[in-house]
Write a protein that binds this DNA or RNA. Structure first.
Lengths: 356, 356
DNA sequence: TGACCGTTTGCATTCGAATGCAAAAATGCT
DNA sequence: AGCATTTTTGCATTCGAATGCAAACGGTCA
């Protein structure tokens, strides 16, 4: 018993004895030594559901606390092939819609024990670099709320890194998506515009290559023509406030007879548009000009704007995105899913009866 | 020569031969095998400044490209004791000032090859949990633009994790800080207010425990009394838009005779205040009421607001924060530094001559 | 007491890259 | 060519935790 093979072999063990932590942070070996158990036992103590006795757990935990031991997530990641890191790709500080999404996603990730590795992506080249970085860091998955080419997506797929798209997707390729479909609300808003006597609309849309913009524009066009409202002018912006102001200028330049309503593809541009109408053109919004838009970001409801807008349920969408990335990480073989949320119309005060 | 000790010992080498990548991602061993060199050589190829011949580099790189090899940052982190991760702690989606800082910092970090591990911190308990997480992930450093108690800071210090504070610090403890000192601009603004005939000011300040708020308030008080402007009322908000609106209500309730100017400790509250003044109280800003504030966030310059505000040079401050964290990671023994940037007054259009 | 079974524990190996050291190769010099 | 020097290369080990396997333990029952 005294000489059982379970006992440590002094030769080897002694060799790696270190002067019990000295500046160095404690490892599982340090804890094991202090508690007089094996390193495996320590490891098991920190793994939920592992086979370990109460007595042992207690001893280990006591030692761990004494040494302020916390398992090294890097080392764990190496052996388990799970980094617990999720790359979150967002673009543009331009559009205040992203921060809201980003913070929400980060919180949701934290809740399930994952960390957000943040990447800002403005161009497609950025995306390229970012994907390589994410790959180096062995991220378990990617949540992309930014640009990504099909080739880039395929690369990630080939590398078996699960991707969840936030408000964008490839229609000719299977992918996992969280999306907001505001078509119902668009129809509702347009109907209301019709009822208020609007027959001539201006449109400020987003970048050509942006899917959300394209889809929203399509829905708007569809509803407008359904109700027989004419689109007298369509200009392109880039989601920023400034492009909203210049968008209205542009509309003003292009058509003699001003539209009675301008539909903006996002809130930021709508705010720019509204400010331009009021400050520069001296119009009364909504009396002289109605404005509606999309997103429902926090500031769209500030008293200066009170936009009539179609909100995306960002909270639920973020939660869904996180759930889905977890799902895909755990069961990669499972087929793709697309979760589509309805929008919600916020009445606001930026529309009124069309001026006669 | 044919049997030189440099040659591989088949027994051991063969044992770990794997069917040359099959779903698995390529490792340095795979590359080494394909290129017919040692793993060390591959490693050195990816380490800038390592001793390696051009010929060797070429061969390795060719093989690496073929296998799409990228070094595993997790494994590297384990051995080098450098994760290249920096925890970025920001609070509040409430205050739109944070996203601007966050995105800027992330970009700056990326530029020097570091990754931002994002943590949102709202309460002090959050900070507790976040610090443990960061510790587990072996972050090289922490940039904190959020709450952190002195005890928590000391814990990080004890663990030898460098911290850079963004716009906050402990005055009774050495620490590394990026800070904006707007005192000059405060004086300038107050002087201007004096010149415009303002003699009675209201103040909307931030949370008691927030240093930026305290400091700004102090500066404002100092300048006001220097110029003999009376602070007739001081109310406390929490940096949000809503607390700006309710702040003005509160002022209105507390004093009969309205102040001619309200000084808000940040832009968000100033916007709330302005909207409240205009929409609810029916005042003309700036004719009936002047408003000034701090931060200079993007939307403070939207046409609806055009705040006269004191901007922080966020870009330079973020850059400095990143420089400093790098510095501290590389030379932890070096003494602390505090970099203080001046503010910059943005004239705006929210102040005017005091009503008589 | 001993045979048997389920549970706990430790051993040894593994993940993938970096690096000190010594051997080998390349280079310079006489 | 011969020797000294510098550069390049490979070997072997290391980082810290997880885990398959087998040994040890604890308990039950005859």
């Amino acid at each position: 018993m005294a000489n059982s093979p379970r006992k440590k072999k002094p030769s080897k063990s002694e060799a790696k004895v270190v002067p019990l932590i000295k500046g160095r942070r404690a490892t599982s070996y340090d804890v094991a030594r202090l508690a007089g158990v094996s390193q495996s036992a320590v490891s098991r103590c920190f793994k939920p559901g592992a086979s370990i006795s109460g007595k042992m757990r207690e001893r280990v935990m006591k030692a761990a606390k004494e040494l302020e031991y916390q398992p090294n997530a890097i080392a764990r990641g190496l052996i388990t092939q799970r980094s617990n890191l999720v790359a979150v790709l967002v673009s543009g500080r331009l559009n205040l819609y992203y921060p809201e999404v980003l913070f929400k996603i980060t919180e949701e990730l934290a809740e399930v024990g994952l960390q957000a590795l943040l990447f800002t992506v403005e161009t497609e080249d950025d995306a390229e670099a970012v994907i390589e970085q994410a790959w180096q860091y062995q991220v378990d998955g990617v949540i992309s709320a930014s640009h990504m080419s099909q080739a880039q997506y395929k690369l990630l797929e080939k590398r078996q890194i699960p991707v969840v798209f936030f408000n964008r997707y490839f229609s000719d390729h299977p992918n996992t998506v969280v999306y907001c479909d505001p078509s119902e609300q668009v129809r509702e808003v347009v109907k209301q515009l019709y009822t208020l006597g609007h027959r001539r609309a201006g449109l400020i849309i987003g970048p050509e290559d942006n899917m959300v913009s394209r889809e929203r524009a399509r829905m708007v066009q569809d509803s407008l023509s359904e109700f027989g409202i004419e689109t007298i002018c369509e200009v392109r912006g880039d989601f920023t406030y400034e492009s909203g102001t210049s968008g209205l200028q542009e509309i003003n330049r292009q058509v003699m007879d001003r539209p009675s309503v301008v539909i903006c593809i996002n809130d930021m541009m709508a705010m720019g548009c509204m400010d331009e109408a009021r400050s520069v053109l001296g119009l009364d919004v909504p009396k002289d000009l109605s404005i509606v838009s999309f997103d429902g970001i926090g500031m769209s409801q500030f008293a200066s704007y009170e936009l009539t807008t179609i909100r995306q349920p960002i909270g639920r969408m973020s939660e869904a995105a996180v759930r889905m990335i977890v799902e895909r990480v755990e069961r990669p073989e499972q087929s793709h899913e697309k979760r589509v949320f309805e929008g919600a119309m916020i009445p606001g005060g930026s529309i009124a009866r069309a001026p006669s």
